[in-house]
């Protein structure tokens, strides 16, 4: 899989600095403090998971990174630059893509058109053709359904399309929001296998996932969010062995 952006220099994990870092990020909406000072880091090449109960602020964190929600306090740095003031368009062009919760594919566009729109910021025909090849190699099912409208796909296929569409922007950092939510177990396996392949190709991943077991299996490190704060963090193996995590999120 080709992941390097045609016009963006590739960063290596060797530079030691975090690719994405959040510092004391606070977000309120509708009078409720959804994030009460979240600080976290994602380094190049990592798969980092965010776990926690519903309403803990996982989705809010991802949306805030993409600037779909306004920040009330704190800073977000991407590749050494402050990005807290930039809009989503600007973040996409710098190499951050979000696969939103609930997939949010375009139901009335064909699968091919959905993918094409994903490449909106670099419409070069050759790059787009290559990226579509890569995405259909990753998800052969999409290749079989190119002319179908997105809305006719099953939930799992729509998730594949949402991930494929985000990959069309050739991101450096992929934010995934609940990729397994409401999807048949067999397809969840396929989707997580694809996430691993995307990471192997050099894309850094920040994953929000309600299936804690799966999240800790696939990730290197993880953060546990509780009521808008980071309650625990560490390597995924450590957290999986942690009694508190086991009791609260692993059902045992």
């Amino acid at each position: 899989m080709r992941t390097a952006h045609p016009t963006r220099p590739r960063r290596t994990s060797a530079d030691g600095k975090p690719l994405l870092s959040l510092e004391d990020v606070q977000v309120s909406y509708g009078g409720i403090k959804a994030l009460r000072g979240v600080s976290l880091e994602v380094r190049s090449g990592e798969i980092v998971a965010m776990i926690g109960a519903n309403g803990a602020g996982k989705t809010t964190t991802l949306k805030t990174v993409m600037r779909l929600l306004p920040l009330s306090h704190g800073t977000i740095t991407y590749a050494g630059e402050m990005v807290s003031g930039l809009g989503p368009e600007e973040l996409v062009s710098r190499g951050v893509s979000l696969v939103p919760e609930g997939r949010a594919i375009f139901p009335n566009l064909t699968v091919r058109e959905n993918l094409e729109v994903g490449a909106y910021l670099h419409k070069d025909a050759k790059t787009m053709r290559e990226t579509i090849e890569d995405v259909t190699a990753l998800f052969p099912r999409l290749g079989e359904r190119m002319k179908q409208e997105g809305g006719t796909l099953s939930g799992g296929e729509q998730q594949m399309l949402a991930i494929g569409r985000a990959m069309m922007a050739r991101p450096e950092l992929l934010l995934l929001d609940e990729p397994s939510l409401g999807i048949a177990p067999k397809l969840v396996q396929q989707i997580f296998a694809a996430i691993r392949r995307i990471a192997e190709a050099g894309v850094t991943i920040l994953l929000v996932e309600q299936n804690t077991r799966l999240a800790l299996q696939v990730s290197h490190r993880a953060y546990v969010l509780r009521t808008g704060e980071i309650a625990l963090s560490g390597s995924s193996a450590e957290l999986a062995a942690n009694q508190e995590v086991q009791a609260a999120y692993l059902g045992g």
Binding site: M66, L68, G87, P88, E89, V92, S93, S97, L98, P100, A104, I105, F106, P107, N108, L109, E113, V117, G118, Y120, L121, R165, A166, A169
Partner: peptide, 16 residues
């Protein structure tokens, strides 16, 4: 067309 169906998703594609 993308914007008509889902504004937030359209912005996530980099559409101004």
């Amino acid at each position: 067309r993308a914007l008509s169906t889902n504004e937030e998703a359209a912005r996530l594609m980099g559409i101004r």
